[in-house]
Design a protein around this nucleic acid. Structure first.
Lengths: 164, 164
DNA sequence: TATTGTTATACTCTATAACTATA
DNA sequence: TATAGTTATAGAGTATAACAATA
């Protein structure tokens, strides 16, 4: 399979390194996945920065805004982040007045994360931006391809991690 | 769309955080992309570790093994890593005797990275492992879905990065 | 004894700037 | 004046262990 960039992105200034696409890694799905993710992450962070958020804090805010009253432990499991990282993310969101910690009535060890009114407003605005950015990347897909991509990614994403 | 993990990964122990899939992020393509990439990266690193490599060093080794004699600058551009990161990656590979730096006859400022015989052997073995691991993840796709996924990812991956 | 949130620490990654030798 | 490789450094991100309160 010959140089794919020249076919898919003809307007981009061609650099000398484009010839390296003709290598093993160039056709590697894992490599493309990493690349695509980097682009996606960069765009999302750029959009979210306008709302004082990053992908991480936006994820936590979204989950809090879902009114499911997650505990920090649940956030940690779901986002696959260490509990200590959740602490700093919530500290940050709490300082910004977007969420607050409430004691879990079922377990006095646990905190439950709830969104504030301000948090709801910021989340709504940030979500609109994030979705627009997502449409800019994935919107070209017809609904069929879109749902196919979603199910493929979900299948990989929900595979149990390497049994270490 | 209700809890997808229970549908796609029924054997995984169900944790309390699975209920959070019913949130905005749960259906977010960017989120799924990040997850899928994390899984893919983790598996690749686990496999490559058996050969003393990581994804980064394997990529450099692969490009060197492609006999295209890339300069460090080209590797930096292609892999989107800072030139200084390429330096340490090549230092590492050179110490392990897998690649060597040769002066570029066309430009005395530049080095060209070439694979050694030992590097070729290690690369062949590592590549076999990496491809097996890739088949374990993506092999379930029929050829049609496989090429569709490849073209979608490539399209996103080769988009020009956010015009900062 | 085990678990939740927390703190502290160290280690990897990433980004930036400066320097040299060439162009 | 600009570019290739290198070095140094600081920041972000990540992983680990320990601790107090609670289960």
């Amino acid at each position: 399979m010959p140089n794919p960039t020249s076919a898919t992105s003809p307007s981009r200034p061609v650099t000398g390194s484009d010839r390296l696409w003709d290598s093993v890694v160039g056709g590697d799905l894992a490599f493309l996945l990493a690349r695509a993710n980097a682009v996606s992450l960069g765009r999302a962070n750029a959009v979210l920065a306008e709302h004082g958020l990053k992908v991480r804090s936006y994820s936590v805010l979204s989950l809090a805004a879902g009114d499911s009253r997650p505990t920090q432990r649940e956030l940690s499991e779901f986002l696959r982040l260490d509990p200590s990282q959740i602490v700093s993310l919530i500290d940050e969101l709490e300082r910004a007045g977007l969420v607050s910690r409430e004691p879990d009535p079922n377990d006095r060890r646990a905190n439950v994360v709830v969104v504030t009114e301000e948090g709801r407003r910021v989340h709504a605005a940030a979500r609109a931006g994030a979705e627009a950015s997502e449409r800019a990347m994935f919107g070209v897909l017809d609904p069929d391809d879109h749902s196919r991509l979603e199910s493929v990614l979900r299948a990989i994403a929900t595979e149990t991690p390497p049994a270490s």
